[in-house]
């Protein structure tokens, strides 16, 4: 019953619509970026509209993987933080936490239900983003084999070639993998939301912490800190886009991310179960 209650609240909150529109808009902007990139760089001298390279390299799947890369690294963590932060802090700010706690509901039940709703929302947002990215890629450019080359984005350390069907399987696996990546910012935000009494603060703090840790994980100077930062493992899903997936590495990174998430959740639960409602 509580789960249905939370799902109804979420569906009526407008957050799913805002998230869907924002994610779709982001993908459209990405497409425009790809479209104008070649024009700008070559002064409009290329036949192919989207990048320097020819159609044998770039297709709808390449667009989808790059869009997904940016989405998982930059946009979806914000939505993960919004969802995590708005679960408990929003109830506290609105005073509705009193309404819930004034019913025979245990704190663990409230906590777990809210977490489940946030995780479901996150998984759906990631799936939606991936699906729309693939769909836009298909409609605007068309699919084909997926070729990846080493570059500044470090998508791969050596050239990869996946057939279209292999690539689609990799995309299907990337969905839960990226969801695991984004669980960390979500649970971090959940933790912050048990401390602060305003959802805006919870989201702001979580996003700030995520961005700082993301930058630290990317800067060579802080390389010794990388094993201790969840942002260091956030791109592990890229390992699925190899012709020979190195599963031990992928699973190890997924487990590390889950361990970070569990750690944040344990702290959040400890705080929520003991806190007073002033």
């Amino acid at each position: 019953m509580l789960m249905r209650f939370e799902m109804l609240k979420l569906s009526r909150s407008g957050r799913p619509v805002v998230a869907a529109v924002s994610l779709a808009l982001f993908l459209v902007l990405m497409l425009v970026g790809f479209y104008t990139y070649a024009q700008n760089e070559t002064g409009g001298q290329v036949d192919f509209r989207y990048t320097f390279e020819n159609r044998s390299y770039f297709n709808g799947l390449t667009f989808a993987i790059y869009a997904f890369y940016f989405g998982v690294a930059m946009l979806l963590p914000v939505f993960a933080a919004i969802e995590g932060g708005s679960q408990i802090a929003a109830e506290t700010a609105a005073g509705t936490i009193h309404t819930l706690l004034a019913r025979p509901l245990s704190r663990p039940k409230i906590f777990l239900t809210k977490l489940a709703v946030a995780v479901i929302f996150l998984a759906l947002a990631v799936g939606f983003f991936l699906l729309i990215a693939l769909l836009i890629g298909l409609l605007a450019v068309g699919w084909g084999d997926l070729n990846l080359y080493p570059g500044v984005l470090q998508m791969t350390s050596r050239p990869q070639h996946l057939t279209q069907s292999e690539a689609l399987v990799a995309f299907a696996m990337a969905w839960p993998a990226a969801t695991i990546t984004l669980l960390a910012p979500l649970t971090l935000s959940f933790l912050v939301s048990t401390w602060v009494r305003n959802p805006v603060n919870a989201v702001g703090v979580s996003v700030s912490v995520y961005l700082v840790l993301y930058v630290i994980a990317e800067v060579h100077f802080f390389r010794d800190l990388r094993p201790f930062l969840f942002t260091s493992y956030g791109s592990y899903w890229r390992g699925l886009f190899r012709s020979d997936v190195y599963w031990p590495g992928v699973l190890q990174d997924a487990c590390k991310l889950l361990a970070f998430s569990m750690f944040f959740l344990a702290l959040a639960y400890r705080r929520f179960s003991r806190r007073e409602e002033t």
Partner: peptide
Amino acid sequence: ARVMVDARFAFAPPAWYPQL
């Protein structure tokens, strides 16, 4: 949670979910 089985509280100001 056990107390709330037989107790009802209504705090001021009343806080509700506006979307329901």
